[in-house]
Amino acid sequence: MDQERAFLFSRKFLYLVGILSILFITGMGVWFYQASQPKEVQFVVNGEVKSILTKAKTVGEFLDEQSIDLDAHDKLSPSTEEKIRKGIHIAYTDQWQVTLTIANKAQTVVTNKKTVGEILAEQKVSLGKWDKVFPAENEEVSANGKIKVNRIEKKMVEKEKSIPFNEVKRTDYLLTKGSKKVVQEGKNGKALLRYQVVYENGEEVSKELTETKVVAPAQDRVVRVGALVTVSRSGADFTARKVLENVTLTAYGPNGDPENAITASGRVATAGRSIAVDPNVIPMGNWVYIEGYGYRRAEDTGSAIKGNKIDIYFSEDQDAVHFGRKKASKVYVIGPTKP
Protein backbone atom coordinates (compact mmCIF):
# COMPACT_ATOMS: atom_id res chain seq x y z
CA MET A 1 0.00 0.00 0.00
CA ASP A 2 2.80 2.35 0.87
CA GLN A 3 4.63 1.50 -2.32
CA GLU A 4 1.52 2.26 -4.37
CA ARG A 5 1.21 5.67 -2.72
CA ALA A 6 4.84 6.45 -3.30
CA PHE A 7 4.51 5.49 -6.94
CA LEU A 8 1.49 7.73 -7.43
CA PHE A 9 3.24 10.67 -5.72
CA SER A 10 6.29 10.17 -7.89
CA ARG A 11 4.17 10.20 -11.03
CA LYS A 12 2.43 13.41 -9.96
CA PHE A 13 5.72 15.11 -9.16
CA LEU A 14 7.25 14.20 -12.48
CA TYR A 15 4.10 15.37 -14.26
CA LEU A 16 4.26 18.72 -12.46
CA VAL A 17 7.93 19.14 -13.23
CA GLY A 18 7.27 18.41 -16.87
CA ILE A 19 4.51 20.99 -17.06
CA LEU A 20 6.70 23.65 -15.38
CA SER A 21 9.55 22.84 -17.71
CA ILE A 22 7.30 23.23 -20.72
CA LEU A 23 6.04 26.57 -19.39
CA PHE A 24 9.58 27.79 -18.67
CA ILE A 25 10.85 26.79 -22.08
CA THR A 26 7.84 28.41 -23.76
CA GLY A 27 8.32 31.63 -21.74
CA MET A 28 11.99 31.77 -22.55
CA GLY A 29 11.20 31.26 -26.18
CA VAL A 30 8.67 34.05 -26.13
CA TRP A 31 11.14 36.29 -24.30
CA PHE A 32 13.95 35.55 -26.74
CA TYR A 33 11.56 36.16 -29.62
CA GLN A 34 10.40 39.47 -28.26
CA ALA A 35 13.96 40.48 -27.39
CA SER A 36 15.07 39.84 -30.93
CA GLN A 37 12.29 41.94 -32.46
CA PRO A 38 12.96 45.68 -33.35
CA LYS A 39 11.66 48.19 -30.82
CA GLU A 40 10.07 51.54 -31.73
CA VAL A 41 12.05 54.48 -30.39
CA GLN A 42 11.00 58.14 -30.30
CA PHE A 43 14.16 59.90 -31.44
CA VAL A 44 14.22 63.70 -31.00
CA VAL A 45 17.04 65.23 -33.10
CA ASN A 46 17.58 68.98 -32.64
CA GLY A 47 13.92 69.31 -31.71
CA GLU A 48 12.58 67.18 -34.59
CA VAL A 49 10.74 63.98 -33.53
CA LYS A 50 11.30 60.73 -35.47
CA SER A 51 9.89 57.22 -34.87
CA ILE A 52 12.60 54.63 -35.52
CA LEU A 53 12.68 50.81 -35.18
CA THR A 54 15.89 49.48 -33.67
CA LYS A 55 17.43 46.28 -32.42
CA ALA A 56 20.00 48.15 -30.37
CA LYS A 57 20.18 47.18 -26.73
CA THR A 58 21.46 50.49 -25.37
CA VAL A 59 21.19 54.17 -26.28
CA GLY A 60 24.89 54.11 -27.22
CA GLU A 61 24.32 51.27 -29.68
CA PHE A 62 21.31 53.12 -31.09
CA LEU A 63 23.46 56.22 -31.75
CA ASP A 64 26.02 54.02 -33.50
CA GLU A 65 23.19 52.72 -35.70
CA GLN A 66 22.33 56.32 -36.58
CA SER A 67 26.03 57.13 -37.33
CA ILE A 68 26.08 59.82 -34.67
CA ASP A 69 29.39 60.62 -32.95
CA LEU A 70 28.98 62.42 -29.66
CA ASP A 71 31.39 65.18 -28.71
CA ALA A 72 31.82 67.23 -25.55
CA HIS A 73 29.34 69.90 -26.66
CA ASP A 74 26.43 67.64 -27.66
CA LYS A 75 23.40 67.05 -25.42
CA LEU A 76 21.91 63.55 -24.89
CA SER A 77 19.11 62.21 -22.74
CA PRO A 78 19.10 59.52 -21.41
CA SER A 79 22.74 58.43 -21.18
CA THR A 80 24.43 56.02 -23.59
CA GLU A 81 24.24 53.21 -20.98
CA GLU A 82 20.44 53.38 -20.78
CA LYS A 83 18.68 50.17 -21.97
CA ILE A 84 16.44 50.45 -25.01
CA ARG A 85 12.81 49.72 -24.28
CA LYS A 86 9.73 50.09 -26.37
CA GLY A 87 8.54 53.68 -26.69
CA ILE A 88 11.64 55.19 -25.08
CA HIS A 89 12.35 58.87 -25.87
CA ILE A 90 15.91 59.70 -26.85
CA ALA A 91 16.71 63.42 -27.17
CA TYR A 92 19.88 64.44 -29.02
CA THR A 93 21.07 67.98 -29.73
CA ASP A 94 24.08 68.54 -31.95
CA GLN A 95 26.10 71.55 -30.70
CA TRP A 96 29.41 73.25 -31.56
CA GLN A 97 31.63 76.12 -30.46
CA VAL A 98 31.52 79.64 -31.92
CA THR A 99 33.70 82.60 -30.92
CA LEU A 100 31.52 85.65 -30.26
CA THR A 101 33.32 89.01 -29.96
CA ILE A 102 31.28 91.98 -28.74
CA ALA A 103 32.98 95.38 -28.48
CA ASN A 104 36.41 93.68 -28.63
CA LYS A 105 35.52 91.27 -25.79
CA ALA A 106 35.65 87.67 -27.00
CA GLN A 107 33.79 84.71 -25.53
CA THR A 108 33.20 81.12 -26.60
CA VAL A 109 29.58 80.00 -26.86
CA VAL A 110 28.10 76.58 -27.55
CA THR A 111 25.18 76.49 -29.97
CA ASN A 112 23.31 74.48 -32.56
CA LYS A 113 22.00 77.56 -34.36
CA LYS A 114 23.21 78.04 -37.89
CA THR A 115 22.84 81.73 -38.77
CA VAL A 116 24.47 84.76 -37.14
CA GLY A 117 21.08 86.25 -36.30
CA GLU A 118 19.87 83.04 -34.61
CA ILE A 119 23.03 82.76 -32.53
CA LEU A 120 22.81 86.40 -31.41
CA ALA A 121 19.14 85.90 -30.45
CA GLU A 122 20.02 82.73 -28.54
CA GLN A 123 22.73 84.60 -26.63
CA LYS A 124 20.31 87.49 -25.99
CA VAL A 125 22.57 89.96 -27.83
CA SER A 126 20.53 92.94 -28.99
CA LEU A 127 21.83 95.19 -31.75
CA GLY A 128 21.73 98.97 -31.72
CA LYS A 129 20.69 101.08 -34.68
CA TRP A 130 24.27 101.75 -35.79
CA ASP A 131 25.97 98.51 -34.70
CA LYS A 132 27.99 96.54 -37.25
CA VAL A 133 27.90 92.73 -37.47
CA PHE A 134 30.42 90.50 -39.26
CA PRO A 135 29.38 88.29 -41.00
CA ALA A 136 25.86 89.53 -41.84
CA GLU A 137 22.95 88.32 -39.74
CA ASN A 138 21.57 86.06 -42.50
CA GLU A 139 24.86 84.25 -43.09
CA GLU A 140 25.61 80.81 -41.64
CA VAL A 141 28.43 80.07 -39.20
CA SER A 142 30.08 76.67 -39.00
CA ALA A 143 31.83 75.00 -36.06
CA ASN A 144 34.66 77.13 -34.63
CA GLY A 145 33.38 80.06 -36.65
CA LYS A 146 33.68 83.69 -35.55
CA ILE A 147 31.08 86.44 -35.08
CA LYS A 148 32.06 90.04 -34.41
CA VAL A 149 29.79 92.81 -33.18
CA ASN A 150 31.12 96.38 -33.19
CA ARG A 151 29.11 98.70 -30.96
CA ILE A 152 28.55 102.05 -32.69
CA GLU A 153 27.37 105.05 -30.70
CA LYS A 154 26.68 108.59 -31.90
CA LYS A 155 26.64 111.49 -29.45
CA MET A 156 26.22 115.25 -29.67
CA VAL A 157 29.11 116.86 -27.79
CA GLU A 158 29.32 120.56 -26.92
CA LYS A 159 32.58 122.46 -26.49
CA GLU A 160 33.28 126.11 -25.68
CA LYS A 161 35.77 128.02 -27.81
CA SER A 162 37.29 131.45 -27.27
CA ILE A 163 36.83 134.01 -30.06
CA PRO A 164 39.92 136.26 -30.18
CA PHE A 165 39.28 139.98 -30.44
CA ASN A 166 40.51 142.10 -33.36
CA GLU A 167 42.54 145.28 -33.13
CA VAL A 168 41.03 148.18 -35.03
CA LYS A 169 43.27 151.14 -35.82
CA ARG A 170 41.75 154.55 -36.46
CA THR A 171 43.59 157.58 -37.72
CA ASP A 172 43.64 160.45 -35.23
CA TYR A 173 44.63 163.83 -36.62
CA LEU A 174 44.93 165.25 -33.13
CA LEU A 175 47.80 162.90 -32.24
CA THR A 176 51.29 163.22 -33.59
CA LYS A 177 52.40 160.61 -36.08
CA GLY A 178 53.75 157.43 -34.43
CA SER A 179 51.81 157.88 -31.19
CA LYS A 180 48.97 155.55 -30.21
CA LYS A 181 46.08 155.75 -27.79
CA VAL A 182 43.90 152.82 -26.73
CA VAL A 183 40.31 154.03 -26.52
CA GLN A 184 38.71 150.60 -26.00
CA GLU A 185 40.28 147.45 -24.60
CA GLY A 186 39.67 144.21 -26.49
CA LYS A 187 37.74 141.34 -25.00
CA ASN A 188 37.63 137.77 -26.24
CA GLY A 189 34.23 136.37 -27.11
CA LYS A 190 32.85 132.90 -26.55
CA ALA A 191 31.32 130.40 -28.97
CA LEU A 192 29.58 127.09 -28.35
CA LEU A 193 30.54 124.38 -30.83
CA ARG A 194 28.37 121.30 -31.31
CA TYR A 195 29.96 118.16 -32.72
CA GLN A 196 28.51 114.81 -33.73
CA VAL A 197 31.00 112.30 -32.41
CA VAL A 198 30.97 108.65 -33.50
CA TYR A 199 32.38 106.03 -31.13
CA GLU A 200 33.21 102.47 -32.17
CA ASN A 201 33.62 100.05 -29.28
CA GLY A 202 34.06 103.02 -26.96
CA GLU A 203 36.75 104.77 -29.02
CA GLU A 204 36.22 107.97 -31.01
CA VAL A 205 36.47 107.33 -34.76
CA SER A 206 35.03 110.55 -36.26
CA LYS A 207 34.01 114.05 -35.23
CA GLU A 208 31.92 116.46 -37.32
CA LEU A 209 31.12 120.09 -36.49
CA THR A 210 27.36 120.57 -36.90
CA GLU A 211 26.69 123.97 -35.33
CA THR A 212 28.51 127.07 -34.08
CA LYS A 213 26.66 129.43 -31.78
CA VAL A 214 28.18 132.71 -30.58
CA VAL A 215 27.37 133.02 -26.89
CA ALA A 216 29.27 136.26 -26.30
CA PRO A 217 30.65 138.31 -29.23
CA ALA A 218 34.23 139.55 -29.11
CA GLN A 219 34.87 143.23 -28.40
CA ASP A 220 37.39 144.93 -30.69
CA ARG A 221 40.43 146.66 -29.28
CA VAL A 222 40.29 150.21 -30.68
CA VAL A 223 43.54 152.10 -31.04
CA ARG A 224 43.85 155.64 -32.30
CA VAL A 225 47.00 156.17 -34.34
CA GLY A 226 48.43 159.67 -34.64
CA ALA A 227 48.68 161.14 -38.13
CA LEU A 228 49.94 164.64 -37.39
CA VAL A 229 53.36 165.38 -38.86
CA THR A 230 55.25 168.47 -37.69
CA VAL A 231 56.86 170.22 -40.64
CA SER A 232 58.92 173.42 -40.90
CA ARG A 233 58.52 175.19 -44.21
CA SER A 234 58.99 178.83 -45.29
CA GLY A 235 59.90 179.87 -41.76
CA ALA A 236 56.73 178.41 -40.24
CA ASP A 237 55.93 175.18 -38.41
CA PHE A 238 52.74 173.23 -39.07
CA THR A 239 51.30 169.80 -38.45
CA ALA A 240 50.14 167.69 -41.38
CA ARG A 241 47.25 165.28 -41.03
CA LYS A 242 48.32 163.37 -44.08
CA VAL A 243 51.38 163.17 -46.29
CA LEU A 244 50.85 162.31 -49.97
CA GLU A 245 53.75 160.93 -51.99
CA ASN A 246 54.29 161.25 -55.77
CA VAL A 247 51.35 163.52 -56.44
CA THR A 248 50.78 164.49 -60.09
CA LEU A 249 50.40 168.25 -60.59
CA THR A 250 48.60 169.80 -63.54
CA ALA A 251 47.33 173.32 -64.18
CA TYR A 252 44.11 174.99 -65.26
CA GLY A 253 42.98 178.55 -65.99
CA PRO A 254 39.78 180.52 -66.77
CA ASN A 255 39.90 179.55 -70.46
CA GLY A 256 39.41 183.22 -71.39
CA ASP A 257 36.11 183.47 -69.48
CA PRO A 258 36.22 184.99 -65.98
CA GLU A 259 33.03 183.04 -65.09
CA ASN A 260 35.06 179.89 -65.36
CA ALA A 261 36.96 181.14 -62.33
CA ILE A 262 34.02 180.20 -60.07
CA THR A 263 35.06 177.02 -58.23
CA ALA A 264 32.98 174.04 -57.05
CA SER A 265 33.06 175.52 -53.55
CA GLY A 266 31.43 178.70 -54.85
CA ARG A 267 34.53 180.78 -54.29
CA VAL A 268 36.30 182.72 -57.00
CA ALA A 269 39.42 180.86 -58.03
CA THR A 270 42.54 182.76 -57.05
CA ALA A 271 46.02 182.19 -58.43
CA GLY A 272 48.50 181.19 -55.74
CA ARG A 273 45.70 179.80 -53.57
CA SER A 274 43.07 177.68 -55.35
CA ILE A 275 43.58 174.06 -56.33
CA ALA A 276 41.25 171.36 -57.64
CA VAL A 277 41.40 168.02 -55.78
CA ASP A 278 39.76 164.64 -55.32
CA PRO A 279 37.62 165.25 -52.19
CA ASN A 280 38.10 161.60 -51.20
CA VAL A 281 41.83 162.27 -50.85
CA ILE A 282 41.92 165.93 -49.76
CA PRO A 283 38.77 167.29 -48.09
CA MET A 284 37.35 170.46 -49.60
CA GLY A 285 38.40 173.59 -47.71
CA ASN A 286 41.62 172.02 -46.40
CA TRP A 287 44.96 173.77 -46.76
CA VAL A 288 47.89 171.84 -48.14
CA TYR A 289 51.57 172.49 -48.55
CA ILE A 290 52.97 171.44 -51.93
CA GLU A 291 56.71 170.96 -51.97
CA GLY A 292 58.15 173.64 -54.28
CA TYR A 293 54.85 175.55 -54.61
CA GLY A 294 53.87 176.47 -51.07
CA TYR A 295 50.44 176.68 -49.47
CA ARG A 296 47.26 176.04 -51.45
CA ARG A 297 43.61 175.55 -50.54
CA ALA A 298 41.31 172.82 -51.89
CA GLU A 299 38.47 174.83 -53.41
CA ASP A 300 37.63 173.07 -56.66
CA THR A 301 37.08 169.61 -58.18
CA GLY A 302 37.26 168.13 -61.65
CA SER A 303 36.16 164.95 -63.42
CA ALA A 304 39.76 164.17 -64.32
CA ILE A 305 41.05 164.81 -60.79
CA LYS A 306 41.08 161.37 -59.16
CA GLY A 307 43.41 159.94 -56.54
CA ASN A 308 46.76 161.57 -55.92
CA LYS A 309 46.24 164.37 -58.47
CA ILE A 310 46.07 168.12 -57.93
CA ASP A 311 45.17 170.82 -60.47
CA ILE A 312 46.73 174.23 -59.67
CA TYR A 313 44.81 177.35 -60.71
CA PHE A 314 46.52 180.03 -62.80
CA SER A 315 44.82 183.31 -63.66
CA GLU A 316 46.35 183.30 -67.14
CA ASP A 317 45.66 180.43 -69.53
CA GLN A 318 49.12 180.74 -71.01
CA ASP A 319 50.70 180.21 -67.60
CA ALA A 320 48.58 177.08 -67.15
CA VAL A 321 49.67 175.73 -70.52
CA HIS A 322 53.27 176.55 -69.77
CA PHE A 323 53.07 174.69 -66.42
CA GLY A 324 52.11 171.43 -68.10
CA ARG A 325 52.36 168.29 -65.89
CA LYS A 326 54.74 167.83 -62.99
CA LYS A 327 55.44 165.46 -60.13
CA ALA A 328 55.60 166.86 -56.63
CA SER A 329 57.73 164.95 -54.13
CA LYS A 330 55.30 165.48 -51.31
CA VAL A 331 52.04 167.16 -50.45
CA TYR A 332 51.15 167.82 -46.80
CA VAL A 333 47.45 167.97 -45.95
CA ILE A 334 47.21 170.49 -43.10
CA GLY A 335 43.54 171.13 -42.39
CA PRO A 336 40.95 173.90 -42.64
CA THR A 337 43.26 176.47 -41.02
CA LYS A 338 46.30 177.92 -42.75
CA PRO A 339 49.42 177.97 -40.55
Rank of each mutant, 00 (worst) to 15 (best):
F7E: 15
F9Y: 14
F9R: 15
L14K: 11
I19L: 13
L23E: 07
E40R: 12
V41C: 02
V44A: 04
V49K: 12
V49Q: 12
I52F: 06
S77N: 13
S77F: 15
P78M: 09
P78I: 06
K83A: 09
I88S: 06
Y92G: 05
Q97V: 12
L100R: 02
T101I: 15
T108A: 14
V116N: 00
V116F: 02
L127P: 01
N138P: 00
N144H: 08
I147A: 06
I147S: 04
E153V: 12
K155P: 14
V157I: 14
K169I: 10
K169C: 09
R170D: 08
D172A: 13
K177Q: 11
V182Q: 03
V182A: 00
Q184I: 07
K190E: 13
Q196T: 10
V205D: 11
A216K: 12
P217Y: 06
D220L: 03
V225N: 03
V225L: 05
V225K: 08
A236N: 11
F238V: 09
A240I: 01
L244N: 08
E245R: 14
T250Q: 02
N255V: 06
G266F: 04
S274I: 09
P279S: 10
P279T: 07
P279G: 10
N286M: 08
E291T: 09
Y293Q: 04
Y293V: 00
G294N: 05
R296D: 04
R297G: 01
A298W: 03
E299Q: 12
T301A: 02
G307L: 08
F314L: 03
K330F: 10
G335S: 05
P336Q: 10
P336R: 11
